[in-house]
Design a protein around this nucleic acid. Structure first.
Length: 351
DNA sequence: AAACCGGGGAC
DNA sequence: GTCCCAGGTTT
């Protein structure tokens, strides 16, 4: 039988790592709203695991906690979430970013409710919208005690350092996944996955790892070599281009002109004010008005930076785009960060 | 394989 | 301010 490349000879046996890490986790696990404490036999609710893991994609515990509380208070079960109006879910997600996640969340809730609950295997989970290799392994391990290997950015960093993998990401990803698999125990795989992520978040941090208090200090090869802070190596990233655009904030008596963006693409499906010039469109004002330039909003997206000129005005004709909504009770927090900034500027300098 | 998706924290 | 971080889907 053909074998892949064998690991270099190590100073430790891979199966020694899980017991050491689990011992540390039993003492130092972070208390998180979606987590059941280590050792407790409390059942882990797959709905809460799924919701937290989707929210945590590309973001941090601190950013997610408030959203998680609001979602679970309002929609305590996946069936409740599946039954919610889409616009309410999008509004509750506003500010968290990557809005395709919210659209996939809604689609996934519908699929899970229709089949009578979450599947309990990684492959079935991975077939659901918005659930890829990371999230499927995390739910299978944490909620269903399956011995799946969970690989996120924390696990990549811990593993790269432990084994001193010097190949830059993203090319190193398959090797790091294979090495992480060598560490994954059959017993308590969910706690092990969470322990790896806690270690990466609190001790084995990107810039200033606290190696002195690390439970894996002994076996860590990068630490021994003095290159822990340099790993994982990454290919240099391209500079972000600068884009320019305009946003129009129009009033008509007590009403504001707002618009729901197309479901796909940039800020897809989110509420905001009509814009042009930065997102592939080049439309004129959405309504006739005597526009005043009240300033510039700067915002940085994943792959470009944006300077958006904010224009305010009193409508003198019918709206060509969007719809009028009463300004009284208008909730700026139902919009993404970019539109919140524009709205804040308009309230300072607008009519 | 590469491009497309926002926002927050550390420094 | 500037740098750095972080999964899934689509093409």
């Amino acid at each position: 039988m053909s074998r892949g490349p064998q690991p270099p000879s190590l100073d430790f046996a891979p199966d020694q790592i899980a017991p050491a890490l689990l011992g540390w986790y039993d003492r130092h696990a972070r208390m998180l709203p979606w987590r059941t404490p280590p050792g407790s036999n409390q059942r882990t609710d797959p709905y809460r695991v799924w919701l937290s893991e989707v929210m945590l994609q590309q973001t941090t515990v601190a950013a997610v906690a408030g959203y998680f509380h609001r979602f679970t208070a309002r929609w305590p079960t996946v069936e409740a979430l599946a039954a919610a109006p889409e616009a309410e879910v999008m509004a509750a997600w506003a500010g968290l970013g990557y809005y395709a996640r919210a659209r996939n969340l809604i689609a996934c809730a519908g699929a899970v409710a229709a089949r009578g609950g979450f599947p309990d295997t990684r492959d079935e989970l991975a077939s659901l919208p918005g659930i890829g290799p990371y999230t499927s392994a995390a739910i299978a391990a944490i909620a269903f005690d399956r011995a799946e290997t969970v690989v996120d950015g924390n696990v990549e960093r811990v593993t790269a350092r432990l084994f001193a993998v010097e190949t830059p990401l993203p090319a190193a990803k398959p090797e790091l996944t294979r090495l992480a698999g060598l560490l994954t125990p059959q017993h308590r795989p969910g706690d092990f996955a969470q322990a790896m992520m806690d270690l990466g978040a609190t001790i084995c941090t990107p810039r200033s790892p606290a190696c002195g208090i690390c439970p894996l200090l002994g076996p860590c090869r990068a630490r021994a070599m003095g290159i822990a802070t340099e790993l994982p190596r990454k290919l240099p990233k391209a500079a972000k281009p600068q884009r320019l655009g305009r946003v129009w904030i129009a009033r008509n008596g007590p009403e504001l002109l707002v618009e729901t963006r197309p479901a796909r693409g940039l800020l897809g499906g989110t509420l905001g004010f009509p814009t042009a010039g930065w997102d592939g469109t080049d439309a004129g004002p959405p309504v006739a008005a005597d526009w005043s330039d009240v300033g510039l909003v700067r915002h940085v997206f994943t792959h470009f930076a944006l300077d958006l000129t904010v224009l305010t005005g009193i409508a003198t004709g019918p709206a060509r785009r969007g719809h009028w909504t009463p300004e009284a009770g208008f909730d700026g927090t139902a919009m993404p960060g970019l539109m919140r900034k524009a709205w804040a500027l308009a309230r300072e300098g607008g009519p």
